[in-house]
Design a protein around this nucleic acid. Structure first.
Lengths: 136, 136
DNA sequence: GTCCCTGCAAACGTTTTGCACACAG
DNA sequence: CTGTGTGCAAAACGTTTGCAGGGAC
């Protein structure tokens, strides 16, 4: 699996220090960061990163399909670098943490299609994580 | 199927003109309105409805389980009065319209549970509606 | 009469935008 | 050198809140 940063280089992406740091922040499994979290982590590596640059970079990466935008129930968008393998999400409804999971896609019965052409399915398993279960 | 307004009366809900109009707006199948749409439609019936009242009423109804809050990919919350039957959603990714659909719940394989206790599953079929397909 | 709902407007958190400057190619 | 990425600050957007007044029960 080629890292995001390398795929961007291959695309001839204009590589600045800020964009490199942001891309490096968005690496790993089960990474579902908010824009603010990306900003904070990027600044830890390079203080000269602005909020505007984070947002414009995130939107650009989503646009070219190198990043998935997740609509989290808390209302804030999250960014998921795992574009290589189709996956679904396991969400802890108490603390909000998310994990990537594999599961079979559900099918939409023909009599429920309303003439729509189905392109894709998004599945979110709402759950309680071990830590939150212990606390409760 | 008892209408929202009647269920609220049965609960001893304090019934004002504004709340009645808002509840009546949230009636029907395949209704997935934003707060602003609820405001606009409520004002069409009764101009003396404020944004704050709409938001507080929506949040109260969600809290007591008489309304579902949907996280739409456009970032705005939607409100779905169909709490009687579990259902999933069919979304047109071009125009954003949503329909309620019935489909079997997918299962999360045991080796993907990460120790979580699964409570519920949310499924969204991403699709293109007939009108958008014609236009394309 | 009491308590809760109401409207208004201001505050809030997140995301977007306008602009002049700086730097990668 | 040129085009595009950058920071800053302000604006835009959806949502929430504080407060004084009014209406349901």
């Amino acid at each position: 699996m080629i890292a995001l940063i390398d795929r961007l280089r291959d695309r001839g992406w204009r590589l600045t220090a800020q964009r490199r740091v942001i891309a490096e922040t968005l690496t790993g499994d089960h990474v579902h960061l908010t824009a603010d979290e990306v900003l904070a982590r990027s600044r830890a590596a390079l203080p000269e990163v602005s909020r505007a640059t984070v947002y414009s970079t995130l939107n650009e990466l989503v646009g070219i399909g190198e990043l998935l935008e997740i609509t989290h129930p808390d209302g804030r968008k999250r960014y998921d670098p795992n574009v290589a393998e189709r996956h679904h999400h396991l969400l802890c409804v108490e603390c909000g943490q998310m994990l990537d999971v594999r599961a079979d896609d559900p099918q939409l019965p023909a009599d429920q299609r309303h003439g729509f052409e189905v392109l894709d399915v998004e599945v979110t398993f709402r759950a309680r994580c071990p830590e939150c279960a212990t606390g409760a």
